[in-house]
């Protein structure tokens, strides 16, 4: 985490100095200018390097080669502890949000279908809150994040077995324009 914060600080510093690629940049991508900067980023990453992806560009959010295209983390039954295996993913999204401070993220917590609907709204909220807190600890600003719960109401897998339930105990990360 210390390393990550350092990297984030460096990227902010570079952005503030108006440095040029290849260092991470485009921290000024606002809501209004995001389409423009996304286009610029896309063009740059193509021009600079066709196989090296800029991990703070908006294009990286949807590029299947990018870890940022992964948007879900999964939980054990009745648990709201983030498993270690998701730490790199969370750190990547933290870096992106720090590099793009006008981008916002909606974190949606979900549960499997067992038990009370309202209790599951609260359980999904716990799952969303822990991810929000993890991102904040990595330096993301609170006002970039909203943690909400969909409870058991929006299952990704409509089945009624353990495999389906495991898929539905989940946080999803959505960025501005995706919700």
């Amino acid at each position: 985490m210390r390393k990550l914060l350092f990297a984030a600080a460096v990227s902010l510093l570079l952005a503030a100095c108006g440095s040029q690629p290849p260092a991470p940049e485009q921290t000024g991508a606002g809501a209004a200018g995001s389409a423009q900067s996304a286009a610029r980023n896309g063009a740059q990453s193509q021009a600079v390097s066709s196989d090296k992806l800029d991990m703070t560009s908006l294009a990286a959010l949807k590029d299947p080669r990018s870890i940022l295209s992964k948007r879900s983390i999964y939980f054990d039954f009745n648990q709201y502890v983030i498993k270690d295996e998701y730490q790199p993913l969370i750190e990547a999204h933290a870096r992106f949000l720090i590099a793009n401070p006008t981008m916002k993220m909606l974190i949606q917590g979900n549960t499997d279908e067992r038990g009370s609907r309202e209790y599951n709204v609260a359980l999904g909220q716990k799952r969303a809150d822990v991810l929000k807190k993890a991102l904040q600890l990595l330096g993301v600003k609170e006002d970039q994040l909203e943690a909400v719960s969909l409870g058991e109401e929006k299952p990704r897998n409509p089945g009624h077995d353990e495999a389906a339930w495991a898929e539905n105990r989940r946080d999803d990360m959505l960025y501005s324009g995706e919700y």
């Binding site: 309202e118 709204v121 609260a122 999904g124 909220q125 716990k126 809150d129 909203e146 943690a147 909400v148 719960s149």
Partner: peptide, 27 residues
């Protein structure tokens, strides 16, 4: 409010609702 808003329950006089909010963290 920011976050989740759920579980409404009417007070017996119908003037208020108890609700569950996550706006200040947690449900």
């Amino acid at each position: 409010f920011k976050g989740s808003n759920s579980a409404p329950a009417w007070s017996p006089d119908g003037k208020q609702l108890a609700v569950v909010l996550s706006k200040d963290g947690g449900s």
